Simulated assay, not measured.
Amino acid sequence: MRDNDGDSLLLGQRVVAILETGLRTATYKLATLMALIDHCIENMPASPDDVLDIPIPALAHRVLEIYWLQVRPFEGQILSQMTGGPKGVIPNAARRLRAAAHVANSRAPLDVAISRVPHAYETALDEVSVCLAGEPLRRLQRFGGAAGSDPFLYDDAFLQKPSSSAKRVRGYSIELKPGVAHGLARLAGLLKPALEIMWVDDVRRMNKFLYAEVPDIAGHLFGRERAALEKVREPFKDAFGPHCFYCSTHLPTGNPIDHVLPWSLVGIDGLANLVLACARCNGDKSNALPAVPIIDQLLDRDRGMLEQIASEIGWPTQRDRVVAAAVGIYRMQPAGVPTWSGYKQTTRLDIAFPPSWE
């Protein structure tokens, strides 16, 4: 039997070492790693030792989704994501897509653009795919000062002579080595916060107007603005009643909207991952992993009602992603891990996996 905990720890150490041993001139490596982690969570192999094939366009979609929110102006300024100015293939692709979809500076999800302007989305996806194949994916496994890469995540030999053809890149995939998908997913709770800290530091370094007192640059970069979800509140109250999803207390005006699967672990903004909450439960739960019965309750909600709300307010449900992420998250949890089951309550995880989520 393999020591999967030891393997995951070694993997995490190597990932951090890659990022800390060289000067990053763009945030692309950080975005690629975040996208890899999210893909692994939502596409968890059945066995910890299995490989995982990831089409580059699928990875490009996730990278585009990250920058989709980040390219909005921050305090009237366009943030640079690379040394030397605001230019950059991936942020510019996201900006052009936002303009084509007429979403202004709102936090409307990427799915809105996919629905409104599918051809513009495909163009942006091709641009990001070619960029990933040409730069971050073939440099991601290179330690600072090393002449070549150390392919501990995936074999990158075919990327060393990248093609500039979007048609060819659409057919490219990377295959994560045995154990890597499970290891990245299992380390998500540690690696993603570390990547965010590095990202904020890089953006501050790349944008001289961001002094230490500038408020909540992390919130802007990683989508934690609570006001952005306000349009969900009233339709949810009309559909499900003005009660806290967790404790059923009656809700006042302006109550929080909570991500059941924590935003810090999987950035899913779809209606299927959102609930009405009271301030007490919302603050107590924070980024904790919810108990399995809470996920059962979440996924038992009326699908037709969620789709109706989605149609009325132009917001995706993303139910399939929520199910896939939940399966991946709980599959990688060790037995007995504490989960949040209500205000000041925890339950040890003890389930016969997989649950009947669908």
Rank of each mutant, 00 (worst) to 15 (best):
H102T: 12
P193R: 02
L30P: 00
I268G: 00
E196G: 10
R303N: 09
V71T: 04
L187T: 01
A324R: 12
R303D: 12
L187F: 02
A17V: 01
V51C: 08
M82L: 06
V169Q: 04
P91E: 00
P151M: 04
H119G: 02
H182K: 06
A26H: 13
G145K: 07
A46G: 15
L110M: 14
L64T: 00
A93T: 13
C278W: 05
F236E: 07
D320N: 12
P262T: 09
Q13N: 07
I295F: 05
A288G: 11
G179M: 09
Y343D: 03
L229E: 08
D216S: 06
L306V: 03
K192G: 01
A133N: 03
A272T: 04
L33R: 04
A94T: 10
E127R: 12
D49H: 07
I294N: 09
L11H: 06
M1W: 06
A326C: 10
H220W: 01
L132M: 09
A325M: 10
A277G: 07
P355C: 11
A93E: 09
I18Q: 15
R95W: 03
I41W: 02
A181R: 08
R139I: 10
G171E: 15
N287V: 11
W315Y: 13
K177S: 13
E230N: 12
A101E: 12
C247R: 13
A100D: 08
V180W: 00
A279Y: 05
D201W: 02
T123R: 09
P293V: 12
